[in-house]
């Protein structure tokens, strides 16, 4: 089986359509179960009581904000290196969802910070670098809108995204490199610092956010493919396009 055939927008479009439903259903199921486990079944925290439960949104959003940026930079690198249109379309599709996850992480983090640290915001390493990540996402989106030619926009956004990827390890390692207000890693390899029911709920929410991001990215890339490949013959054969004529 030649997997590289899916590098063609015409081949990838129907595949993405099928995968959207699969990941949307998985995300919904995991979200419901994860929220039940996290909000009702998991025990209260010794020091933070129930206010810790925002972890079930904050941590998945923060992880996805970093992960999506790395994936976006990866697709832009492929687009720049191999000059493939679909790679750039995938990267273009990821940016808004990544920005949403970053904004959500900052928003939920602020509401967690008030009862925990007594402040909604502090200019410490992690929070500042996460804010920089939001600016990078918004910068990539704005740069895309500012350039009319899609291929030139791909190149410009690709350079910005790849340069900005250095921020992601800074965010991740900030709590170890500097003396920050933000707490250390919730989940670490080997050493367990979290109750098993809490961990179960957290992992379910992480996968729910991950599958949601995949579903919405695939949905958006289908719209981008139609926009950028509008003159192609294969699009005229699509039943959903024929039905609109």
């Amino acid at each position: 089986m030649n997997s590289f055939k899916y590098a063609s927008p015409a081949q990838f479009y129907p595949l993405a359509g099928k995968l959207v439903s699969v990941f949307a259903v998985l995300a919904t199921v995991l979200l419901i179960i994860g929220l039940i486990v996290g909000l009702y079944l998991a025990p209260i925290d010794v020091t933070q009581k129930d206010s810790y439960r925002i972890i079930y949104v904050h941590v998945p959003a923060a992880w996805m904000s970093m992960f999506l940026y790395v994936v976006m930079a990866f697709w832009y690198a492929i687009a720049l290196g191999a000059n493939t249109r679909l790679s750039a379309m995938m990267a273009q599709s990821i940016a808004p969802t990544g920005a949403l996850m970053t904004a959500l992480a900052l928003w939920t983090g602020s509401f967690w910070g008030k009862p925990t640290w007594g402040t909604y915001w502090e200019w410490d390493a992690r929070m500042t670098s996460e804010l920089v990540l939001l600016f990078l996402y918004l910068g990539v989106i704005a740069l895309r809108s500012a350039i009319d030619d899609p291929r030139r926009a791909d190149k410009a956004c690709g350079v910005l995204a790849i340069v900005g990827v250095v921020n992601v390890p800074i965010i991740y390692m900030s709590v170890q490199w500097w003396n920050t207000l933000h707490q250390g890693a919730t989940i670490s390899v080997g050493e367990r610092t979290i109750d098993s029911m809490m961990l179960t709920g957290l992992l379910m929410m992480i996968f729910a956010f991950w599958f949601y991001s995949i579903a919405i990215t695939l949905m958006r890339v289908r719209a981008i493919i139609l926009e950028r490949e509008a003159g192609a013959n294969w699009i005229s054969e699509l039943s959903e396009v024929k039905g609109q004529r």
Binding site: R222, A223, L226, E227, A230, L238, E240, V241, Q244
Partner: peptide, 24 residues
């Protein structure tokens, strides 16, 4: 925010299909 995002993407997809049909 997620609901708004889903609505926005679905609207963008509908618009793209309409433009593709009209352009043909």
């Amino acid at each position: 925010l997620c609901i708004v995002e889903v609505i926005a993407v679905r609207a963008r997809l509908r618009k793209a299909r309409a433009i593709a049909a009209h352009r043909i």
